[in-house]
Every structure is written in structure tokens, then in C-alpha cells.
Simulated assay, not measured.
Amino acid sequence: MGDWSFLSEMLDKVESHSTLLGKVWMSILFIFRIFILAAGVDGIWGDEQANMDCNTLSPGCRNACYDASFPISHTRFWVLQILTVSTPTFIYLGHVMLVIRKENKLRRQLGQKCDSNRMIKSPKYSDERGKVQLKGLLLVSYMLQLFFKILLEVAFIVGQYFIYGFILMPNVITFKGGNCRTDTDCYISRPTEKSVFIIFMLAMSVLSVVLNIIEIFQLMISKMRHRENKSIGSI
């Protein structure tokens, strides 16, 4: 399945600048999606086309049946899903790194005090350890990446249904067309195991959507309470 170390390192950096629910989402992405996909998918899927048996020896018929039934392999679809859904988080990480770099530069300027006549703004979003606070533009950036992750997850859930036309893996696919001159039955290997895997990955996608929605509402409620407490304290 390839090397996921780069993705792991990037998401580890994001985790230090996320909320508690954001860390839970990272754990689900790592343990229940990336790790299980990398560990178990090769043994269950393998070479899908080679493992498909058809009740005909017509050259090219099995290839045509497989291509019509699976325009893209489930495994490649899930890899594409994980990388795409993680992209908004990487963009947020880039924003965080940019903010930290700018504010570290401000700290150096404040420490040097090279120009006493010029007003230098104090760091607003991060502390000396590089820990950021979700407020202002950073909060907007964080909320946007949550929103886009929800949209992308839903798009892939719907897309999976429209691409394959089924949730459970069927035992047999009847196909006619291309090099298959008559109705041809092609039998899928390990359909039950594949069905369990499909359901599991769909469940993880739905859980990811739910966690992101809850996190958005949690952030909104938290900021509303903070404003209320601030307004009460100013009275």
C-alpha cells in the first residue's frame, strides 16, 4: 500500500494545533483507516481482476466485466479519499506555520528593540513554545478546514455509491458487452470479507463527518460562552 510516513509526520504536526476532538479525528484517521487499510487490504483484495472467475473463456471478457463493474479499485478509491480529505488539514497547518514564523519574528524584534520609535505589535496567536490559540483568522481557518473536510467526506460517500452501485460486494456480477457476447457471470473472490471492509470504511467516513460537525458546534458554543463571560466581566 505504500509508505504513509510522510502523511503521518504531517498530521502529527497538525495534532499539536488542534482541539481535543481534532486529536480524536486524527486517531481515527491513523488507526482505523490508514493502519487497517495498509495492514489488511492487500490480503483481502490482492489482484482483483486476476482473482475474478468468469464462466467463459472469451479473450478480454473478464477484463471488460471488471472494468465495467469497478472503474476504480476500492483500495485506490480509499487512498484517494484519505489524501483528499486530509488536504484541508494540511492547508490549515501551512497557515499555522506561517503565523508562528511571523510571530517569532515579532518576538525577536521586541527583544532587540532596535527601533524604539517604531511600534511593534505583540504576538497575538502563539506563545514562545509555538502553541497557538484558536481565535481570529486562525479560528476561521480551522473552521473552514472542518467544513471542507465534511464536504469532501460526504462527496466520497455519495461517490462510492454512484461508482459501484452497491454497498455490499456481490457474489457474482452478470455482464454483457465488449468481448462478452452473451450474458456472462463473473464471480468475485472473498465477497463477504470485502463487504465487511466496505461497511467498515463507510462507517469510518460517517464517523469522521459526525466528529467534524460536533467540533464545529463545540467551537461555536465555546466562543459564544467566552464572549458572554467577557461582556459580563466588563460590566
Score class of each variant (00 low, 15 high):
residue 3 D to K: 00
residue 11 L to F: 04
residue 12 D to G: 01
residue 23 K to M: 08
residue 26 M to I: 12
residue 31 I to M: 05
residue 32 F to S: 07
residue 39 A to C: 01
residue 39 A to S: 03
residue 47 D to K: 01
residue 48 E to Q: 07
residue 50 A to L: 06
residue 53 D to E: 12
residue 53 D to C: 10
residue 59 P to N: 03
residue 62 R to F: 04
residue 62 R to K: 07
residue 68 A to Y: 07
residue 68 A to W: 03
residue 72 I to H: 00
residue 74 H to A: 06
residue 75 T to M: 03
residue 77 F to M: 02
residue 80 L to V: 08
residue 81 Q to A: 13
residue 89 T to D: 14
residue 90 F to R: 10
residue 90 F to W: 15
residue 91 I to F: 13
residue 96 V to I: 09
residue 96 V to G: 06
residue 98 L to S: 15
residue 102 K to S: 10
residue 103 E to D: 06
residue 104 N to F: 15
residue 109 Q to S: 09
residue 111 G to R: 10
residue 116 S to D: 14
residue 120 I to N: 02
residue 126 S to R: 08
residue 126 S to N: 06
residue 129 R to N: 13
residue 131 K to W: 09
residue 132 V to K: 00
residue 133 Q to M: 15
residue 134 L to H: 09
residue 136 G to M: 04
residue 140 V to N: 13
residue 142 Y to R: 03
residue 153 E to R: 15
residue 158 V to C: 15
residue 162 F to P: 15
residue 166 F to C: 13
residue 169 M to F: 12
residue 171 N to L: 12
residue 172 V to T: 12
residue 179 N to I: 02
residue 182 T to P: 07
residue 184 T to K: 05
residue 187 Y to C: 08
residue 191 P to G: 00
residue 194 K to E: 06
residue 194 K to M: 05
residue 197 F to L: 06
residue 199 I to F: 02
residue 204 M to Y: 05
residue 206 V to P: 12
residue 212 N to R: 07
residue 214 I to H: 09
residue 217 F to D: 14
residue 218 Q to Y: 13
residue 222 S to F: 12
residue 226 H to P: 08
residue 227 R to S: 10
residue 231 S to M: 05
residue 232 I to H: 00
